[in-house]
């Protein structure tokens, strides 16, 4: 069972790697943003470079999960291969687990360039403790964005999922303050950002790597988003199972 989940994950990764456009979206854009914006403008200030890197990490967590699951799952559902795989002597679980594992692997792969660029080309710095805290925040904040992606992928056809993922992605990035430093966003964004999933996640990330204070209301908002996305994802998954496999 667990080895089958790994098999599913492995073949999904092979498919993704053979279509490198998917990797460009999740890995190239954050790395390029680091090189063109963070390195020249903020790279020499340790504090700014560190928070900017934290923002970019949150950006990767959001965008890679949103696109991986939102578009990937919608595409899978449209393929006749999916019902065929259901006739093989396993349940639906290994395929689902395999997709989650593949998504986590791709997220990690997209994070590596950001971290390497920050370490080599900027003054960004973290203590080992801060690094572990940031790692923990990465894992925790991957959950709501994974669920958001699954909710989109299971409830919409491919074309609509692609559009919705793209429509959500920029407002989530800017609205959450990922493109601006702590306290530097335009006023209305500073007001709403703590309550958006991206803004709440990046605030936890800033708190992990610097002396930014954790805002309880913002954490509560992230928990609420996670519960809400889990509800929609669960509903959409069961509806999809009911339509195609019951």
């Amino acid at each position: 069972m667990s080895s089958l989940a790994l098999t599913h994950a492995r073949f999904q990764l092979i498919e993704t790697v053979r279509m490198p456009m998917a990797l460009v979206g999740s890995a190239f854009f954050p790395a390029a943003s680091m090189i063109f914006f963070v390195v020249p403008f903020l790279g020499s200030n340790p504090e700014w470079a560190t928070t900017a890197t934290a923002s970019m990490v949150t950006f990767v967590v959001m965008s890679s999960n949103l696109f991986q699951y939102g578009i990937g799952v919608a595409e899978d559902r449209a393929q006749p291969w999916d019902p065929y795989a259901r006739t093989l002597p396993v349940g639906a679980a290994p395929r689902f687990l395999g997709r989650i594992l593949a998504g986590l692997a791709l997220m990690t792969l997209s994070l590596i360039p950001v971290i390497v660029i920050a370490a080599v080309l900027t003054e960004a710095t973290v203590t080992p403790g801060q690094f572990l805290a940031a790692l923990g925040v990465t894992v925790v904040s991957a959950v709501p964005f994974t669920l958001m992606g699954l909710a989109i992928g299971y409830s919409l056809p491919t074309k609509a999922a692609v559009v919705l993922a793209q429509v959500l992605f920029l407002p989530l990035a800017f609205g959450g303050g990922l493109m601006t430093g702590p306290g530097n966003a335009p006023g209305f964004i500073e007001t709403i950002a703590p309550y958006l999933p991206t803004g709440a996640a990046v605030r936890l990330m800033w708190a992990a790597v610097g002396d930014f204070a954790v805002q309880p209301a913002s954490v509560a908002a992230l928990v609420a988003w996670t519960v809400a996305f889990a509800g929609v994802a669960g509903w959409a998954y069961r509806r999809d199972e009911g339509r195609r496999f019951s």
């Binding site: 498919e15 393929q79 291969w81 093989l88």
Partner: peptide, 17 residues
């Protein structure tokens, strides 16, 4: 289903594999 063999529709083969 261990005893079962089924053909997928040919359009359904994962094209990158």
């Amino acid at each position: 289903r261990k005893v079962l063999g089924v053909t997928p529709q040919e359009t359904g083969l994962p094209s990158a594999l």
